[in-house]
Design a protein around this nucleic acid. Structure first.
Length: 822
RNA sequence: GGGGAAGUGGCGGAAUGGCAGACGCAGCCGCCUCAAAAGCGGCCGAGGCAACUCAUGUGGGUUCGACUCCCACCUUCCCCA
């Protein structure tokens, strides 16, 4: 008879089982499986070099969910990969002269080791790395399909330029006017760039948010705001003395008669046309003004600078009032937002009001409040809806009526129409960087812009020192010398469809087969940080809708059925960073506390969506729990090989004393918590692990007093199953020591037995007028009449009822009785 | 400025209309030990000798009963401008 060592040797046990699991490949889903499919994944990491505890929280949660679902009888797909293109590799290459590919490969090697060290059950046979030609080949292929459908195009436009990263950025990557990666203030530059026409899907991206009820409301709101749909009208202003017009978009068409100037962005094409019309002095002033703004960022222009402008010397005609209003070039109108021109209505718009005050432009009120409205001079803009005044035929109408009537009138005159505006702009994907997917386009002097034919894909990323050679290529159409596109793709392109590549990672005829997409999509549960709320998660939805429209996928057109954002991890209340020296590493944690303890701690310390705080004292509590589990099981292990039996035989024993009943109840309460938290997708495993604490406390007490207890034996035999998804190593070790031969991770989870969960005796809480006056031990099935009788026998209750009439009572069966008296 | 989320012991948190503070951390006491660590057992919101009273950011409201629902305010965080 072998006997286990006194102390739980986590280092030995964790290493033993990790090697074993890798060898046995437990976690591959079976394609022909009749069980319902469950596709769960976490956002794939950038291979920065080391896994930190924030990753660990994300993957521990994902792993617990995947293991629970597998044990609940689902055919679980749980893959992992690498978001492997991107700037850090290139910056490391520049700083230290290493090859970005080699640097990335080395990091992947280390981080894959660390993810395995965490005891995670991924299906590694599906692993992808987006920097490999086998992957980015399909990036290029998808890009060409987008281009064929008019969804990828090149144009010259003012774009966000990050001076530090030396590349352009998409709008979503500019946070408060700064680069999302390095926080430098972005500049405006006019460059010819590739865009994806995400705006073509704006309405669907917006409308379908309504159906995404498995997403956090917060994230849906953010996407809604980002898309920024607004109903309004387009109005055409003729330019006096020129055969040109200026379109403006407005949500306040009802204020049209109050327009006293027209404000255009310096980049607006009309500005050049006007030079034929106005004096050289005006032209020079406009040019000087435009130049002063050229490199200024959007943030600087819209909120950091004073509103400034110069009069162009030209006038526009209000299409309804036929009034003549001056055209100004201003810094607060952006060329890329709306049409690059707005009608200035100082009486009813704050920014126009400020501008008009500064340049002494007229302020003409055309809207008054519905009730108590006066025509007294405005001291600030009145921006609410109201009733129209001084608006020709429209005078007296409400704002809403006027908007409709004016839109109809404009449409009849061919001078505008009702129109929808969006804040969302097309996705700029060109990056002036080396370490990314080459855009598969060739520029030929004769044929122009030519797509690289599919059969020539992938366009391989050349070694850095062969770049100039790489750019020279014959035109795929005419064979004459031509030049390749030198820009690479935004890395968000890769991550917009990788969840499909996991399904068919070795397919070399297509990015994925329709058949596997039909079998596995969509992703049942996606877990990742909230920082991608409008980046990755919006781009992915756009791609997936495109795939849907092509018939490349089956089912719905949303990729992620349910989304969960895990919270951050702080260390001793502070954000972890290398400069603070408080980065908690995986290797160190595995060695000092053990992986199971780390996993339990990360799940236990807070609900998963909250920010957690890592402390050494905190994790010591989970180390203690594991040691207590080990000791509580001690006597029952080793010598009892084969006695556990099959699932059917593993029935809870009949016991008659209260302590043992409480133990059986604790076993099933823990199972119930684990199952409920999983199926409700609340994932508050902190409460589940608290149930494990309670269970082990009871086991410990009984193990001392009555080690031969049948209930204790049952708890010992069941514990490994209960904890398997959360602390997979100790679970497997205990399981083996119970004499089991298979893996505990292939077992079915314990089905909570309601009969064991109910208690026979309850504490009936008796209230008088809502305040607790007695706690009475009673049979759980106590009737209402019996409960009242019991309560009225209690001296304290009688004292509080003394001299009062019992008016009524409220009875909550098995819980509470409230006596209402006056 | 607009929108959203949150606020509970010394700390993390539990309770989603029914015993506020489960469970853990820290702390205190005891057992064990030559001693310590570990372990095991107990105590642990405030006031009070006690019966009790007060207590879930603040103030109102709904209800037999509110941490939970509603209104207003304060604070913090997030998003948008």
């Amino acid at each position: 008879m072998s006997h286990m060592a006194d102390a739980y040797d986590y280092r030995h046990v964790e290493h033993k089982w990790q090697s074993q699991w890798e060898h046995e490949r437990l976690y591959r889903p079976r394609d022909g499986d009749a069980k319902p499919k469950y596709y769960t994944m976490e956002m794939l990491p950038y291979p920065s070099g080391d896994l930190h505890i924030g990753h660990a929280k994300n993957y521990t949660l994902g792993d617990a969910v995947a293991r629970m679902m597998r044990m609940l009888g689902y055919n679980v797909l749980h893959p992992m990969g690498w978001d492997a293109f991107g700037l850090p590799a290139e910056n490391a290459a520049i700083a230290r002269g290493v090859d970005p590919a080699a640097w990335t490969a080395e990091n992947i090697l280390n981080m894959r080791r660390q993810i395995r060290l965490m005891g995670t059950g991924y299906d590694w046979s599906r692993e992808i790395a987006t920097c490999e030609p086998e992957y980015y080949r399909w990036n290029q292929w998808l890009f060409l399909r987008l281009r064929e459908h008019g969804l990828a195009y090149k144009r010259e436009a003012p774009v966000n330029w990050c001076p530090v990263d030396a590349t352009v950025l998409a709008n979503e990557q500019v946070i408060d006017g700064r680069c999302w990666r390095c926080s430098s203030l972005v500049e405006r530059r006019s460059l010819s760039q590739w865009f994806l026409r995400i705006t073509a899907y704006a309405d669907r991206l917006l409308e379908d948010l309504e159906r995404l009820d498995g997403w956090p409301e917060r994230t849906r709101t953010m996407q809604r705001n980002w898309i920024g749909r607004s109903e309004g009208a387009r109005v055409r202003f003729e330019v006096e003395g020129l055969d040109e017009s200026i379109d403006v978009f407005t949500t306040r068409l009802d204020t049209l008669y109050g327009a006293t100037f027209l404000a255009v962005a310096p980049e607006h094409p009309i500005v050049r046309a006007l030079s034929m019309l106005v004096t050289g002095e005006h032209t020079a002033q406009i040019q000087a003004f435009a130049e002063s703004l050229q490199s200024k960022s959007e943030l600087e222009r819209t909120s950091m600078m004073e509103k400034r402008g110069v009069f162009t010397g030209a006038y526009a005609i209000n299409p309804l009032s036929r009034g003549r209003i001056p055209i100004w070039v201003t810094n607060y109108v952006l060329a890329e937002y709306g049409s690059g021109a707005v009608m200035g209505v100082p009486a009813h718009d704050e920014r126009d009001y400020d501008f008009a005050k500064r340049y002494r432009l007229p302020i003409e009120q055309v809207i008054v409040a519905e009730e108590g409205g006066t025509e007294a001079p405005l001291r600030a803009s009145y921006v609410e809806d109201g009733r129209l005044i001084a608006s020709g035929d429209f005078t007296g109408m409400s704002s809403a009526d006027a908007r409709a009537a004016m839109a109809a009138c404009l449409a009849a005159a061919g001078a505008g129409e009702a129109s929808i505006g969006y804040k969302l702009r097309d996705w700029l994907i060109s990056r002036q960087r080396y370490w990314g997917t080459p855009i598969p386009i060739v520029y030929c002097a004769r044929c122009g812009e030519v797509a690289v034919p599919d059969e020539q894909l992938p366009v391989l990323l050349p070694p850095r020192n062969a770049y100039e050679e790489f750019l020279k290529t014959p035109c795929p159409r005419c064979g004459e010398p031509a030049r390749r596109e030198s820009d690479t793709m935004d890395t968000f392109f890769e991550s917009s469809w990788y969840y499909l590549r996991y399904l068919d990672p070795h397919n070399d005829a297509a990015p994925w087969a329709l058949e596997v997409a039909r079998r596995w999509m969509n992703v049942d549960q996606y877990i990742g940080g909230a920082e991608h709320a409008v980046l990755h998660l919006l781009y992915s939805r756009f791609f997936y809708k495109f795939f849907h429209d092509r018939g490349w996928i089956a089912g719905g057109d949303e990729p992620f059925q349910r989304l969960f954002h895990q919270g951050l991890v702080l260390c001793d209340g502070e954000k972890m960073s290398k400069s603070r020296g408080n980065v908690v590493g995986i290797d160190e944690t595995a060695d000092r506390h053990g992986i199971d303890a780390m996993r339990l701690f990360l799940l236990y310390v807070t609900p998963p969506e909250e920010t957690s705080n890592w402390t050494d004292e905190g994790i010591s509590g989970r180390v203690r729990l594991l040691n207590r589990m080990w000791r509580a099981c001690d006597r029952h292990l080793g010598g009892s090989a084969g006695s556990v039996g099959s699932l059917e035989e593993r029935q809870a024993p009949l016991v008659d004393n209260a302590e043992e009943k409480a133990l059986l109840r604790a076993v099933h309460a823990a199972a119930k918590s684990a199952v409920d938290e999983t199926l409700s997708r609340r994932f508050h495993y902190n409460t589940t692990i608290a149930k494990f604490d309670e269970l082990v406390n009871l086991m410990t007490a009984i193990a001392t007093k009555s080690p031969q207890s049948a209930a204790l034996r049952y708890a010992v035999e069941t514990l490994p199953i209960l904890i398997a998804p959360f602390a997979p190593h100790i679970a497997e070790e205990l399981w083996e020591r119970l004499g089991q031969t298979g893996s505990v991770h292939l077992e079915r989870y314990l089905v909570p037995d309601e009969r064991l969960l109910i208690t026979e005796e309850i504490t009936l809480v008796v209230q008088v007028n809502g305040k607790v006056r007695a706690r009475i031990l009673a049979d759980a099935r106590v009737s209402e009449e019996e409960a009242v009788a019991l309560a009225l026998r209690d001296p304290n209750v009688r004292a509080y009822l003394d001299g009062k009439d019992l008016r009524k009572h409220i009875y909550v069966p098995g819980k509470l009785l409230n006596l209402v008296a006056a």
